[in-house]
Design a protein around this nucleic acid. Structure first.
Length: 302
DNA sequence: AGCGAACCGGAC
DNA sequence: TCCGGTTCGC
């Protein structure tokens, strides 16, 4: 099994798997060492912090980790080009070195995962996606390959509701049945066509709107021009690029405009570039400043 | 077209 | 009370 070591500027593995792109990686203790473990399709991916950076590998297929982490892309190169286009992003790029856009081997895992994120909070999202994953095959102790759609369909809405999925139980099962009825590889094949085509195909599925479709396009199908506009990216985009929409709501048209803005500006780098703004908005200064502007956390009315 | 409300259930 | 949205009805 081949181990790849990357400097932190090229890869911060922990950041990548905890920044809301995927939800099932966890820290384990193996032989006295702290390692991150998770599944990508039928393979296990392992990562360990070293003095040099991060050491990563996959098994049994040792090559999948390169695709999963998009190691064909040089993050130094991406950062340099993004900053040429928009120098004011420098503080964000500097704040999150090693933040990569991932690509999962199975787009159906991406789809079911992001169906769990709908109107939900991150803590519960992790719990639900992991619970779904546990219906899959156990590849190694505690590490599960994601179940196929047929399996999710068989679990059924009632059981999922009992497990706390709420109204997402219904759409999960509906989508699972829909996928099970289509030819094998239908979803995966969308990556061969055009981005717009993939978006509209995904939006046909019950419970899938623009945002979930874009997440599947970016993290599952490898469309780098996809820009998922969630509430965080919406807020930061309004502040930075569309101040005239301050206080307004995210309509279909505006969703489109935000994505187009990123695509015009960053082209194929849009997916990577948005990640810095998104994660800053989730965690750090972006969140605080957006709040601060919204008037008086300390003076909430009665 | 654009806006608001409901939706499961658990964090905060 | 608020969610990392989607859908439905004005």
């Amino acid at each position: 099994m081949r181990k790849i070591t990357l400097p932190i500027e090229e890869l911060d593995f922990e950041l990548c798997v905890t920044s809301g792109q995927i939800f099932r990686f966890q820290r384990f203790e193996r032989g006295g060492r702290q390692v991150w473990l998770g599944a990508d399709g039928g393979n296990v991916i392992e990562a360990e912090r070293t003095p040099e950076g991060w050491a990563v590998c996959s098994r049994p297929d040792g090559s999948v980790v390169e695709r999963f982490l998009r190691l064909d892309v040089s993050l130094a190169d991406v950062s340099r080009r993004v900053l040429e286009i928009e120098p004011s992003l420098a503080p964000l790029v500097a704040r999150f070195p090693g933040l990569r856009t991932l690509r999962q081997a199975r787009a159906d895992e991406t789809l079911f995962s992001f169906l769990c994120t709908v109107n939900n909070n991150l803590t519960r999202i992790h719990r639900l996606v992991r619970a779904l994953g546990a219906f899959g095959e156990e590849l190694e102790p505690g590490v599960f390959g994601f179940p196929p759609p047929e399996r999710i369909a068989r679990v059924g809405e009632v059981r999922l509701r009992e497990m706390g999925f709420g109204y997402r139980a219904r759409t999960l099962v509906q989508v699972a049945e829909e996928l099970a009825h289509r030819p094998t590889g239908w979803l995966q094949a969308l990556s061969e066509g055009e981005y717009e085509r993939a978006v509209s195909a995904l939006c046909e599925l019950p419970g899938v709107g623009r945002k979930v479709a874009d997440c599947v396009c970016l993290f599952g199908l490898g469309f780098d021009e996809a820009v998922p506009v969630d509430t965080h990216l919406w807020r930061v985009s309004v502040e930075r690029y569309f101040p005239q929409w301050r206080g307004g709501s995210l309509t279909d048209k505006r969703y489109r405009a935000v994505g187009d803005h990123f695509r015009q500006r960053f082209g194929r780098l849009a997916g990577f570039a948005h990640e810095f703004l998104f994660y800053d908005s989730v965690t750090g200064a972006g969140k605080r400043s957006a709040r601060g502007r919204k008037a008086s956390p300390g003076a909430r009315a009665k």
